[in-house]
Design a binder for these strands. Structure first.
Length: 507
RNA sequence: GGCCCGUUCGUCUAGGGGUUAGGACGCAAGAUUUUCAUUCUUGUAACACGGGUUCGAUUCCCGUACGGGCUACCA
């Protein structure tokens, strides 16, 4: 079998959408499964929509996920350049070739003229039925065309779509899809600014870059008929790649495909990394900054539109590479379910390697002004990992490992604290403070002895210790927590808390 | 509007002419943990509709409805 070559071809118009990441992932998986090549190509043919920084963003996002291209701008490869803006002459050469072969033509209609046509007829389409009435090299005298060209008049090159043909596409996901060529318009191939349109550029590049499989979103299915026609016109039909069109990722409420604005609307990320656009409107929080592990996000994305047919849910990238197959990609659109994504993240946090997690959590703690030693941080992570859904939760739910409780759960204090017991608890604090070997085990033994001696119940004492140390009832095992915080810190907190408890229960 | 694609629990999905229609997330209940979380158990809940074909359709075919995509000198 010929070596597989697949490309991910985003356009640098802003942050990379999460649906784009899934497309990249599937391309990567299929390439790697067969020992093929994964290529990044930047489709920057729309100068009006070009956004500086977008290309770097795309690369950083791919790398964060571990989807590192084998070829691409900055990645090497002998099929470059990998930015379409740097391949301009190529497209011009091939479109000219098409014109000469009678498969395309020059069109001189101005955008204003076309707009006027559309105003007159909302269904106006530049196709075989009207092309002979418009201003192009098919209708104008040859000298006039030559003159216009020599004069530098604006023109585009359009594909001359043949009449009365059925154009069929073999799609790996959907099977055969057919179009009536009379429904197809004469797509612009080369724009007035000399840049190609997507249609021309992607066909030329896929051919030149020897792409074997095109995996892209379903929004491209309709125009694939044009692409087939182009391969034919260029005489490349035998080298045409196989197509697989992915189901779209839909909004959680099911109304249309997921868009960049939906992140803000529904309160979860739809981008891999945060993006700071020109305006707040155009700025987004990413999966990374939201506290996702890249492995978890990949796992979630992989299962959005594909499944292995087994009951396995958790997959490493390597396992995905082994298991993936285009045949098992789904046809129907897929709702974006953030709860499932969070569940994956939680699973990955629980199972993550300690050293790995340490490096993910350290910067979060540091951002709040604390730089604990590795031993402490490790202990903290082990106590908290089963209680974190996002990385941010380590701080949100465990900040009291680094600083005193900011507040005490008043309801619980009302319920559990009795002012007359302050003396009793001071005594317990004293006993714990004089403990030798401040381990969870020893603390527990001492507390137990105290409880028995005083005729108390665990429920009288443990919540008070927890509240005193953490301020909240939510958290890891209390004695473990105390051991990690250390004798002096715990004693300080307890003494202070008991005073506070009295105030809180006697307003 | 036209063309194209799709439709199994709320969501992601398995399945496929005869099944108690399976799993996961979520939700609910219980057990464990004297907290919270984890874990475990149980429960909840689905084949869009109408015609065919067939001894038998959720599964195959055709319609309808609904949803989505495309319909730019954007990708």
């Amino acid at each position: 079998m010929e070596k597989l070559r697949l490309r991910f071809a985003p356009s640098p118009t802003g942050a990379l959408h999460i649906g784009g990441v899934r497309t990249a992932l599937y391309n990567y998986l299929l390439a790697k499964k067969h020992g093929g090549t994964f290529i990044l190509r930047i489709e920057d043919t729309d100068q009006a929509r070009f956004v500086p920084g977008a290309e770097d963003y795309i690369k950083e996002a791919l790398e964060w996920f571990g989807l590192v291209p084998d070829e691409g701008p900055g990645y090497g490869g002998d099929h470059g350049p990998y930015r379409q803006s740097e391949r301009k002459e190529l497209y011009q050469k091939y479109t000219t070739q098409l014109v000469e072969a009678g498969r395309a033509y020059y069109a001189f209609d101005t955008p204003e003229e076309l707009a006027a046509q559309r105003e007159q007829d909302p269904n106006f389409k530049y196709d075989a039925s009207v092309r002979m009435r418009l201003k192009n090299s098919l209708t104008l005298p040859q000298e006039e065309v030559a003159h216009a060209l020599a004069e530098g008049k604006d023109y585009v090159i359009r594909l001359k779509v043949p009449e009365n043909e059925t154009v069929s596409v073999q799609d790996k996901v959907r099977g055969q899809v057919s179009f009536d060529s009379n429904e197809l318009d004469d797509k612009v191939l080369l724009k007035a600014d000399g840049m190609p349109t997507y249609h021309m550029a992607n066909v030329v590049d896929d051919y030149l870059m020897e792409i074997t499989h095109v995996i892209r979103g379903e929004e491209w299915l309709s125009s694939t008929a044009h692409h087939v026609l182009l391969y034919r016109a260029l005489g490349w039909e035998s080298r045409m790649p196989e197509f697989a069109h992915l189901p779209l990722i839909l909004r959680p409420d099911g109304k249309g495909k997921l868009s960049k604005r939906d992140g803000a609307r529904f309160g979860f990320p739809v981008f891999p990394l945060s993006w700071n656009g020109q305006t707040e409107e155009d700025s987004f929080t990413g999966f990374r900054e939201y506290g996702f592990l890249p492995e978890a996000a990949i796992n979630f994305l992989a299962l959005l539109g594909w499944n292995p047919g087994t009951e396995q849910e958790v997959f490493s990238l390597e396992e995905l590479v082994d298991t993936f197959s285009v045949e098992r990609i789904n046809k129907s659109g897929t709702r974006f379910d953030i709860d499932k994504a969070k569940w994956f993240n939680q699973q990955y946090i629980i199972k993550a390697d300690a050293g790995y997690l340490l490096e993910k959590v350290r910067p979060i703690i540091k951002a709040h002004g604390y730089e604990p030693g590795d031993a402490f941080l490790r202990g903290f992570i082990e106590l908290m990992r089963e209680r974190a859904i996002t990385l941010g939760d380590f701080w949100e739910n465990g900040y009291f490992f680094f600083e005193e409780p900011r507040e005490y759960d008043e309801k619980m204090i009302q319920k559990r604290w009795a002012p007359e017991r302050k003396g009793l608890f001071d005594e317990l604090a004293g006993q714990l403070h004089s403990l030798n070997g401040y381990t969870a085990e020893n603390i527990k033994a001492q507390a137990e002895a105290f409880i028995n001696e005083k005729g108390l119940k665990f429920g009288d004492v443990l919540p008070i210790l927890r509240l005193g140390v953490a301020g909240t009832m939510k958290g890891p095992a209390i004695f473990e927590m105390m051991e990690l915080l250390g004798k002096e810190e715990v004693d300080r907190r307890l003494r202070k808390a008991f005073v506070q408890f009295n105030e809180l229960s006697n307003p």
